[in-house]
Amino acid sequence: MNGQGILKGMLVTAKNFFGSYVSRERLTTVSYPEGGNTIKEQSRNIPFLVFDGEDPVAGMRCTACQKCEKACPPQCIFIEKDKDERGKALQRPKVFDIDASVCMGCQICVEVCPFESIWMDSNFELSTFNRFEGLQFNREKLLKSNTYFHKIHPQQAQASDDRLAEKERKRLEREAARRAEKSASEPQV
């Protein structure tokens, strides 16, 4: 019969419409921004730098090795090494800029970083009125504490902490071994 298909279609629509009042499954939208946070733990948006402890600059994990700068496909990271008063290069960046308008959130910088220093943030509310300086993220803006990292990516942060602890343990072991060797090889008098 003509029109049957349309009637059937209407029935489905009605089922979905009234269903949204009774079943959670059919109600799929949340109101923003009051609706709560629906982003997943793994969600990634733009990188940030992790620091340990309280002081952002002292606790910075980044050693300015510039691996991420080289690997970033659209080349949106800019790093300058820090120097002490005598001009000796320090193992930390003086300038660490990420151009948020260029970054495409690919996570390649995270993968290449050997020091667990750069990770992906899941904050997406980055809109600004100033598209030049506002989207140029500098070192101060990028540095975020390990606590924050634990808050947004608990699993990744835990794994990262474990890896760092393992590294530290190995380093201490090596040092102890070296010291033991040294004391063993010292002439006994």
Partner: peptide
């Protein structure tokens, strides 16, 4: 309706890879 179902799959993608559409 189609987008609603697609959204569930994109959630899975986000869970696995971190991004909904640009998964890499």
């Amino acid at each position: 309706y189609a987008l609603r179902e697609r959204e569930k799959i994109l959630d899975l993608f986000e869970w696995a890879s971190g991004a909904r559409m640009m998964c890499n």
